[in-house]
């Protein structure tokens, strides 16, 4: 579907300017998505961006393509339905950690099991920003927030490890302070055949005073720079998934080629559903009726 010409970056910019707080990590993610789409030469008509609810879920409104700004936690399901209806669309899901790892966690896990050809970008700021600063599923233990004044007592979700055990076939983590690196990861995810997760450290400059740009800048290193690491080695990926502390890896954690859900679904053999005739053959109708006698 890709066109030959590389389109100017503005092609992918929505009519509305983002309303995020100045300095928000999500700006970097939006820019990275634009660069990725440009790099892959995707026509805007063939991109379908679905989000849930939260600051980061406003992203589709700032990006020029088709899309749905859906319900809190349900982006994955809406996107899955749209993908099955028209699997020629490049379906990208964008949202936050609360949306995807909290209220929408069930859909996230099952979408990975299915290996639908979807790209999921999670702007993980480890806090609920839109609701002014409560603990999220990725808030670190001990972190004091509006809803955890004595410090968060729950362990954070580990998205990379969760994706590894759930069957995702492309698992990456980026940092919005590294937009070009992030763009490569997103482009890799969109180009990948199967489910891809790109978890992004996207700092909330207003409500998360712990996991800030400087905090990440001091810690992150790129997996590509670790020459001994092989993202097709599951065991090695697991080890990297649990690295946290002074050094935190970003980059491609895992990649494998597996058959996608779309490829195994017999009703999609003739092409996208959206292009199939609505009416079945008369002979088939007669056969269906015959079963009732």
């Amino acid at each position: 579907m890709a066109t030959v010409v590389e389109l100017p970056l503005e092609t992918y910019q929505g009519v509305v300017e983002p309303d995020w707080c100045p300095g928000c990590g999500d700006f970097g993610v939006l820019r990275a998505l634009e660069i990725a789409a440009q790099k892959l030469r995707l026509p805007t008509k063939d991109i379908f961006v679905v989000s849930g609810i939260g600051c980061s879920s406003n992203l589709p409104g700032f990006f020029h393509s088709y899309g749905v700004h859906s319900l809190h936690g349900r982006a994955m399901a809406v996107a899955s339905g749209a993908k099955l209806a028209n699997h020629e669309l490049h379906v990208v899901i964008t949202g936050g950690d609360g949306d995807g790892y909290g209220i929408g966690l069930n859909h996230f896990i099952h979408a990975m099991r299915r290996n639908l050809d979807l790209t999921y970008i999670v702007m993980n700021n480890q806090i609920y920003g839109l609701t002014t600063g409560q603990a999220s599923p990725t808030t670190t233990k001990g972190h004091k927030t509006k809803s955890t004044p004595r410090g968060n007592v729950e362990l954070p979700i580990n998205p990379v490890a969760l994706a590894l055990v759930s069957g995702a076939t492309y698992i990456a983590r980026g940092f919005s302070g590294e937009a070009k690196h992030l763009a490569d990861l997103i482009a890799g995810g969109i180009a990948h055949k199967g489910f891809s997760l790109v978890d992004v450290f996207s700092p909330c400059v207003t409500y998360n005073i712990v996991n800030t740009y400087p905090w990440f800048k001091q810690r992150v290193y790129k997996l590509e720079d670790d020459k001994g690491f092989d993202p097709t080695d599951t065991e090695a990926s697991f080890k990297k998934a649990f690295e946290w502390g002074d050094k935190i890896p970003i980059g491609l954690f895992y990649k494998s080629e597996e058959v996608t859900y779309e490829e195994t679904e017999p009703a999609l053999k003739k092409g996208p559903l959206v292009r199939q005739p609505l009416t079945i053959e008369k002979k088939l109708f007669d056969d269906l009726m015959a079963e009732f006698y």
């Binding site: 379908f48 399901a77 339905g81 099955l84 959206v274």
Partner: peptide
Amino acid sequence: CEDELAVVNMAIGAGHAGV
């Protein structure tokens, strides 16, 4: 699907996309 939330949201996604 995994639950009825997915069921209806998938159907709406598919309906929105044109089937």
